[in-house]
């Protein structure tokens, strides 16, 4: 170890890896909608259309601690 390296200590790459992975995985987990999201959307539209003319359906998935919540927004034309 040279004299200067004492002052210019490089951050350990394992620590960097851990931090980067944490962020990447938490964003993967949040962003990934369920694999069956498209099918579910189509089914919901079909059910709603029995009663009212739905224009589109937006589903959002949010994580809150131990539970995931699904927000379903149905757009109806005026």
């Amino acid at each position: 170890m040279s004299f200067f390296s004492l002052f210019n200590k490089k951050e350990k790459s394992a620590g960097v890896a851990k931090d980067r992975l944490r962020i990447a995985i938490s964003s993967d987990r949040n962003n990934t909608s369920y694999p069956f999201m498209a099918e579910m959307k189509a089914d919901i539209i079909e059910v709603v259309r029995k009663y009212i003319q739905a224009q589109s359906v937006h589903i959002t998935r949010e994580s809150d601690g131990d539970v995931d919540t699904l927000g379903i927004e149905i757009i109806i034309p005026k």
């Binding site: 992975l21 995985i25 993967d28 987990r29 369920y34 694999p35 069956f36």
Partner: peptide, 18 residues
Amino acid sequence: EVSSIRDADKAIGIVDAK
């Protein structure tokens, strides 16, 4: 190694969903 761990997490997610 980072890519292996990220891909594993994705695979685990599919097990839990499907």
